[in-house]
Design a binder for these strands. Structure first.
Lengths: 197, 197
DNA sequence: GGGCGTAATTAACCTAGGTTTAGAGAAGGA
DNA sequence: TCCTTCTCTAAACCTAGGTTAATTACGCCC
């Protein structure tokens, strides 16, 4: 798709924070990613120096443990920055993969020079702090739910938070988001159905 | 204890970030808190406009669910800022209490005017973003451990991360940090002892 | 020393959720 | 049309950790 057009979206996204960015510096490094369902932007264990901007579509962050179990940490909707803050700031391999849940479009740009330039811009740094605050708060709520709520409650929470996904996303992935096996989720769903009557 | 002296520590803490702060504005609002073991700086459900700086000692962040179960989210050592970013930025009641694990000293100051002034200071905003990044990374690792590791593994992780606490902290609180009951922890400990032989 | 409150252990029992295996639909491809 | 593959459901069984309750151990105050 049109790189010009997508870059436009990225610029608009940052405009809302009144950050003063010289995009010309990155023109040559910006890459367009057309994703089909199941394609990955970033793979667990990979080192990447890029941040991504999700222009359209939907992705999930998931990780796989040594024992082969999959856990979906986050589901992110466009428009949004996506990427591993941790991997970029500590320059370590990513702890999770980022996978498209539908067809999606994203662009990538190199984080270091961008962050270098941006950390001189107060408006941007403020916006970045706000971004971190918001994902932090989300993470805190998810930790809370994982520890304090039963699987059934977490499923109901998921249905409340993502009403548009509860019927379109495969149940395996819903199960992986709430931290249980698809089999347990199936049990919970039939249990809920019989309770309703 | 000497307010002057503790305030000095707070200023030194921010000096390391080269933030340019006019402390005179807050002199009258700064309060000193001398904490005994078990005293709380902040109580779950309370609204507070203050941020705290832990000058000496050790605190834990814990929350109690409706069903009366306690969960320790974080253990924080001095010197450090402590408080609920979430409660302050959204001006909502705190989701957790902050309790001293030993005798500790802290000072409090009003967050809003401070943050207002500080968000004009690039060095401070950068430092704040780094602070958020660091607690975010910690939270991500804890979420990961809670989901992927067994209670036994989480106990071993705790012993690795807090070697100085594993014998001094009451087992109830260790259990609450790793998200199990004290009874389960006792079982795990005897299990580990017999395994060693 | 004797009582008392708190913390830690132990054992018996229970339950949520994992594991394994099998089968039922739906969807595509030759 | 049949065959394959993928997703979901169902049932039998297992296990980690929760629950309850009784027992012991360790201060601490009188």
């Amino acid at each position: 798709m049109d790189k010009q057009y997508l870059t436009q979206q990225l610029m608009q996204f940052f405009d809302q924070y009144q950050a003063n960015i010289n995009w010309d510096l990155y023109q040559t490094d910006i890459q367009v990613h057309m994703l089909n369902k199941g394609d990955c932007l970033l793979r667990q264990g990979e080192r990447s120096a890029n941040m991504f901007f999700l222009c359209s579509g939907l992705v999930r962050y998931y990780s796989v443990s040594e024992s082969g179990k999959e856990y979906t940490q986050t589901i992110a909707k466009s428009p949004r920055l996506v990427g591993s803050t941790r991997a970029l700031t500590l320059s370590q391999p990513a702890l999770f993969s980022i996978e498209a849940l539908h067809a999606s479009t994203a662009i990538s740009f190199p984080w270091q020079p961008f962050y270098q330039q941006m950390s001189q811009d107060l408006a941007f740094t403020q916006a970045y702090a706000m971004f971190l605050e918001s994902i932090f708060i989300h993470k805190e709520q998810k930790e809370h739910a994982m520890v304090k709520h039963s699987a059934t409650q977490r499923y109901l929470d998921f249905c409340r938070d993502f009403p548009e996904l509860k019927d379109t996303l495969p149940q395996q992935q819903i199960a992986s988001y709430i931290g249980i096996t698809p089999i347990a989720l199936s049990r919970i769903r039939t249990q809920l159905k019989t309770d309703q009557r």
